[in-house]
Design a protein around this nucleic acid. Structure first.
Length: 152
DNA sequence: GCCAACGTTGGC
DNA sequence: GCCAACGTTGGC
């Protein structure tokens, strides 16, 4: 089983929205590296840290789980959608998404500065300079450490 | 293939 | 709102 971190802007879709909706499809990712993680590497049952980006403060908010593996993101075919991709067709999709379900909300929110302060988390892609990936792999020990920080 | 211009992300 | 860092596009 693998572990992941997925960023979402809470103004758009927060952990509370996921809790209410129970599950969601993770559409709108338009970055090749992030796409490949979703298309190729994410497997049913993988655990996801739900991260609030562009937030006040930003940080880890909860846990989700992959319930459907990579399939074409329908928003790329819709000319009226913000994420329309003119070069894509249903026969040749460019972009992929996964479905995730709500697992739990962390008892205490783990802000980014706490993550940065923890020596065990120094190697996380998240805290490395200039990393803007919205979907990224996380090591099991890092995942566990953040969950531990959030369960106090 | 290089690189400037432009767009986007995301912390602060 | 600012701006650094990065990705993408397009002219050459």
């Amino acid at each position: 089983m693998k572990y992941w971190l997925m960023k979402s802007e809470p103004d758009v879709f927060s952990i509370d929205d996921l809790k209410k909706k129970k599950k969601t499809h993770w559409d709108g990712v338009r970055n090749f590296q992030a796409r490949n993680f979703m298309k190729v590497e994410m497997k049913k049952g993988d655990k996801v840290l739900f991260y609030h980006s562009n937030a006040d403060p930003s940080g880890a908010a909860g846990i989700a789980e992959i319930i459907k593996e990579g399939y074409p993101d329908h928003t790329q075919f819709d000319p009226d959608d913000k994420h329309f991709e003119p070069k894509a067709s249903p026969q040749k999709p460019y972009w992929y998404m996964v479905d995730v379900k709500f697992v739990e909300k962390l008892k205490t929110f783990v802000p980014l500065n706490e993550i940065k302060k923890n020596p065990k988390l120094r190697k996380m892609k998240l805290v490395q300079r200039g990393n803007r990936l919205s979907v990224m792999p996380v090591e099991k020990n890092e995942f566990d450490e953040i969950v531990k920080m959030g369960s106090k």
